[in-house]
Amino acid sequence: MPLLEVIQTRHLSASIRLTDTTAAQVDQYAAFIHACADDVVEQALAYVFSKDRDFQEFLKTTQAAHVTPTLRVRRAAAPDAVEQAPKKPVAGMESSESLRVQKA
């Protein structure tokens, strides 16, 4: 029997909008628990979904199977595709990546 159990999960990228306050708190919580922002959002949603009894009941209905998707999911590139360069920031705005490079 193996000592480790590796569970492979399929991740996808999606685009969501957050208020500036919520986005800042996601980053702050991620720093607080030494995790990345993606993990904070993933675990927070999983927690809410599991604790909401009305939602759990809704999932058992046929209506739940016929929900129209509204989340903007980014389609994954082909496995052998070369990663594209990041988009240029909007005029007057800098990405957090470019800010990190300048600080170093």
Rank of each mutant, 00 (worst) to 15 (best):
P2V: 06
D52I: 00
I16G: 06
F49E: 11
L18G: 06
A85S: 06
Q25R: 15
A37K: 15
A14G: 13
I33S: 03
L3I: 14
S96P: 01
K60A: 12
A23H: 04
S98F: 05
Q84M: 08
K88G: 13
S15A: 14
T70P: 00
T68W: 02
K60F: 06
T9K: 09
A24C: 13
L18Q: 04
A35M: 04
D52L: 00
T22S: 11
L4I: 13
I7Q: 06
A44Q: 03
P2R: 04
S13D: 09
A31G: 07
I33F: 08
A31P: 00
A64V: 03
L99D: 02
L12E: 15
L99W: 04
A91T: 13
V73C: 11
P86R: 14
P89W: 03
H11G: 04
A46N: 07
H11Y: 08
K87G: 13
Q102A: 15
V48S: 05
C36N: 11
A46H: 12
A81C: 06
A85L: 09
D27C: 12
L99Q: 13
A35D: 04
S13H: 05
C36H: 02
L4N: 10
L3N: 08
D27H: 15
V6W: 07
D54S: 10
R74G: 04
E94N: 05
P79F: 03
I7P: 00
K60L: 15
T68V: 14
R53N: 07
A31Y: 03
L99H: 01
P79D: 12
Q84T: 11
A23K: 08
V26R: 00
V40K: 00
Q25H: 15
A31V: 06
D80S: 10
D38P: 00
A44N: 01
S15Y: 12
V73A: 15
E42Y: 02
K51L: 11
A104F: 08
Q56R: 12
D80A: 11
F32I: 05
A104M: 13
